[in-house]
Design a protein around this nucleic acid. Structure first.
Lengths: 335, 335
DNA sequence: TACTGCGATCGAAGCGCTTCGATCGCCGGA
DNA sequence: TCCGGCGATCGAAGCGCTTCGATCGCAGTA
């Protein structure tokens, strides 16, 4: 292995000079710096991450805790991850992947053994057990989602309440009177996943405000689940003319099933989807949607973490305003 | 931070004894071990990962390089990742996520700075530039996919040639005479992605062998792309009665579009999908499929890496035999 | 001319761990 | 009784880096 001493010898300086040239923490004459850089290149030197971590108490690694559940939408998670890893590399950091399976202990392990400098947590629950661990370890952290008790932790997410409201309002303004929310899997609600409840409440509040008849139903993420969900919906609330779908996994099944039931979109049924933008075009009809800004949130989470590491950040809760884009799946109801 | 010396003091032994108790590399009396374990628990000791890496030249981290392309199927990638991270934790290792964007330099960086002990590479191309880096660094590595020149690197993948053959053969045996392959995005072929070509060749070989008229078409992963692909297909090869779909992203679009064109599955058109098992049920009809064993491959990749780290493994190429499951999307052609 | 201040560089300590080579009892065999 | 051998433990070196406090030479000032 090529060490800093090898570089120092090659460049005719001391190891500390090489270190300072690399970190820029002390001034180095231009000439020396160039000689060092040349040596580094010639020898193919890469600082040993462990040694660096030990000496500086900085690993340049961010930990990201992702859910492995199937009832959560996988592509959405992947988009977060992609955005986060890309953003992290922009700050010269790497991303370590943890799974929610490990629970609070996983977070403790990683933070306590200084494997990562900060932790980003996805799929946050209302009463989130990882919050107290993070807090007691005084570990820089960013939650994607908002627990009931964020304590002093930073949070970032789409403003799901506003999103739910926007979706319902859009249907109301088109003149729909009976609408429904096709929500995430029941398991998501049971788990108290923070975004699901917030969306639901926003949806209901807007429905009430606009005097709509509104029904909310969770939906298992499978074709059968969707079919059952629709059966139930039309039995309990016939004449429904507008659907808000907060469950990316069943979107295509929904369209297939509506078509099978001779319901045309948007003539017989309007649909507002809640999903990342790149999912609205993969169906026969371009979907009116409230965007889930996965890329922004992922990137923002990393930025917030980096700012905490730089010491220039107090805890903050950032809720991104929803953006609704009207496309071809919504229209006034036929009356 | 709680250090090994704190534990040693608390337990009334020397730091090295604690280390040996933890690693089991020398025998420690039961009594001492218990005292040490108690101290560890009481103090909440976690070994410092950097220090450990520095002293032992082992990080207990595996690097996984994933593609971020949209033209690759995202859920499939995610399933690999999930399987790999879970398997890695089973060996007390963590997973560091790299993206293909960083190219060979990313691999070099991680290996040379001893951030990870081994590298697992997804989305391997026929002439894979990362192979030589990996090899010259003498870094334990596992490729998911098989490049033209695997050199001494281990590879694991589904036997895509056999899979292509199995899919075509199944249609042949049902009596179909004109079939088609709806393949991945053209970009995937252009990039020389290893699995796409292997599947195609297997498909064509079997078609030839069974005297089928067979056409292969790449397909952009969008509704429009699929529609264009079908248009082209039916223009160039009308009377096609069987489809092999090696493009998970367009499965639901395909079913929707066939239905829109009054083609019933399987009465008018048989479909063999190539996809992970959990994707066959999300459509109106359960799909006959050749399984992509994402979980097995991901887990196997980790196991192979661990075996290399343990020093008990020479390079090997493991191709998993395809498993075709007949479901409801295939039937003899109407004639 | 003597001194101050500053930019550039060096040397050494130390981060927390692993590991190699002692050391120290203690037991069994001669 | 003495000694060899072995299990249990200790001490110290060292992994490769960062960083603090010197040192050194030189330009500018009094």
């Amino acid at each position: 292995m090529v060490t800093i001493s090898d570089v120092a010898r090659d460049a005719g300086v001391s190891p500390s000079t090489v270190s300072y040239a690399l970190s820029g923490k002390r001034s180095i004459s231009a000439e020396t710096r160039h000689r060092i850089e040349a040596s580094i290149r010639r020898l193919g030197y890469h600082p040993h991450a462990g040694a660096r971590a030990l000496a500086s108490s900085r690993t340049n690694v961010l930990a990201l805790v992702i859910p492995l559940r199937v009832d959560l939408n996988v592509p959405v998670v992947m988009q977060f991850v992609a955005a986060a890893v890309t953003a992290a590399r922009g700050y010269d950091h790497d991303l370590l992947l943890l799974t929610k399976d490990e629970g609070p202990e996983g977070v403790r392990r990683v933070a306590a053994s200084a494997i990562a400098d900060a932790v980003i947590v996805m799929d946050v629950e209302a009463s989130e057990p990882r919050v107290s661990v993070l807090q007691s370890l005084r570990c820089p952290a960013v939650l994607i989602g908002v627990p009931d008790q964020p304590r002093d932790l930073s949070c970032v997410d789409l403003d799901f309440a506003a999103a739910g409201s926007a979706a319902a309002t859009q249907l109301a303004e088109l003149g729909h009177r009976r609408i429904a929310l096709i929500g995430p899997s029941p398991a998501v609600y049971e788990r108290g996943t923070s975004y699901a409840g917030r969306f639901l409440r926003g949806f209901q509040a807007a429905a009430t405000e606009h005097n709509l008849t509104a029904r909310a139903q969770p939906c298992l993420p499978s074709y059968e689940g969707l079919r059952a969900c629709l059966d139930e919906l039309f039995r309990r609330q016939p004449e429904t003319t507008g659907l808000v779908v907060h469950n990316e996994a069943v979107l295509s099944a929904l369209l297939a099933e509506l078509s099978a039931r001779q319901l045309r979109v948007p003539a017989d049924m309007s649909i507002v989807a809640v999903c990342p933008d790149d999912m609205v075009e993969n169906h026969g009809v371009a979907l009116t949607s409230v965007a889930i800004p996965t890329a922004e949130v992922g990137q923002l989470a990393v930025e917030m973490a980096m700012r905490q590491l730089a010491g220039v950040a107090q805890p903050e809760i950032r809720l991104l305003s929803p953006r609704l884009t009207v496309r071809d799946s919504t229209a006034p109801p036929r009356s």
